[in-house]
C-alpha cells in the first residue's frame, strides 16, 4: 500500500479515543485507523495516557455499597450479546466493487442508494441516525466538485484512487480535515476516486454556475 501522507491531528485522535466526536466523524477516523499503522500506534499511546490520567484518582465508596455491588456482579448473568455479522467487505457502485476496511464495513447496511450528480460525481448517504451522517462520494475520471466553502468542518478520507485540489494530491488512506475558513476544489484526472466524507454543515458553493446549487446543497451533500 502506498504511503499515507495526511493524518488526523492529535487533537482529533484524542477526541476520538475519549468518545467526544460526532459518531459519523468517529467512523471516518476509525476507517483511517484501519488503513494507517502510524495512527493506530498514536491512538494506542493516547489510550494508555488517558487511561492512566482518568483512572488515577479514586472516589471514596462506602464499604457496604462496594460489597453489595461486588456481590451483584458475581451473581450476574453474562450480558446478552447478539452475534454480529461480519463487516461487509465490499461496497458496490454499478459494476464496480470496492474493498472497504471493517470500521466502514460494519456500517454498510446503513448505506443509502447511490445518486448521480452533475460533474461525474456519485453520492450515497450513510446515516447513523437523524443527526449523524456521512457520505460516500465517488468521483469518476476527470470529475470535479465545484469550489465551495464549508459552514462547518469537512473531513474526507480517500478509500480508493486519487484526487487533487489546489493544495495537493491525495491517495488511499489520506485524511483531509478542513475547517469553515478553508476552501478547495477537488478534482480527479485519469484515475477515479472513492472517498468517505463527513460534513457538519451544508456546503456553500462560491463560484460560477455552481452558486445556483446553493439552495440545494443541503439536498446534495447532507
Amino acid at each position: 500500500m502506498s504511503k499515507i501522507k495526511f493524518h488526523p491531528s492529535e487533537e482529533l485522535l484524542v477526541n476520538y479515543v475519549s468518545g467526544q466526536l460526532n459518531a459519523a466523524l468517529a467512523v471516518v477516523v476509525g476507517t483511517h485507523l484501519d488503513m494507517c499503522p502510524r495512527c493506530r500506534s498514536v491512538v494506542h499511546d493516547i489510550e494508555v495516557h488517558l487511561a492512566t490520567r482518568e483512572l488515577h484518582q479514586t472516589s471514596p465508596m462506602a464499604e457496604p455499597e462496594l460489597a453489595a455491588m461486588l456481590e451483584s456482579i458475581l451473581a450476574s448473568e453474562a450480558p446478552m450479546v447478539a452475534p454480529k455479522s461480519a463487516p461487509e467487505e465490499n461496497i458496490i457502485l454499478e459494476s464496480k466493487s470496492f474493498k472497504v476496511p471493517p470500521s466502514l464495513g460494519r456500517h454498510a447496511s446503513r448505506m443509502g442508494p447511490w445518486s448521480k450528480m452533475p460533474g461525474g460525481l456519485w453520492r450515497a448517504p450513510l446515516e447513523l441516525n437523524a443527526d449523524e451522517r456521512m457520505h460516500l462520494i465517488y468521483m469518476q475520471e476527470n470529475a470535479s466538485v465545484p469550489e465551495h466553502t464549508h459552514r462547518g468542518s469537512e473531513a474526507t478520507l480517500v478509500l480508493d484512487g486519487v484526487f487533487s485540489d489546489e493544495h495537493d494530491e491525495y491517495r488511499d488512506g489520506d485524511f483531509i480535515f478542513l475547517d469553515a475558513t478553508q476552501q478547495h476544489t477537488p478534482h480527479t484526472t485519469d484515475e477515479s476516486c472513492l472517498t468517505l466524507a463527513f460534513l457538519d454543515a451544508p456546503l456553500h458553493f462560491t463560484s460560477g454556475v455552481a452558486r445556483l446549487l446553493n439552495p440545494f446543497s443541503s439536498l446534495f451533500f447532507r
Partner: peptide, 20 residues
C-alpha cells in the same frame, strides 16, 4: 471470585471518580 474481588476493589473507586 477472589481475583475478581481484588480487581474490583482496585478499579471501582477509580471508575467511580472518572464517571462522576
Amino acid at each position: 471470585r477472589i481475583a475478581f474481588g481484588e480487581l474490583f476493589r482496585h478499579f471501582a473507586p477509580r471508575l467511580q471518580s472518572f464517571a462522576t
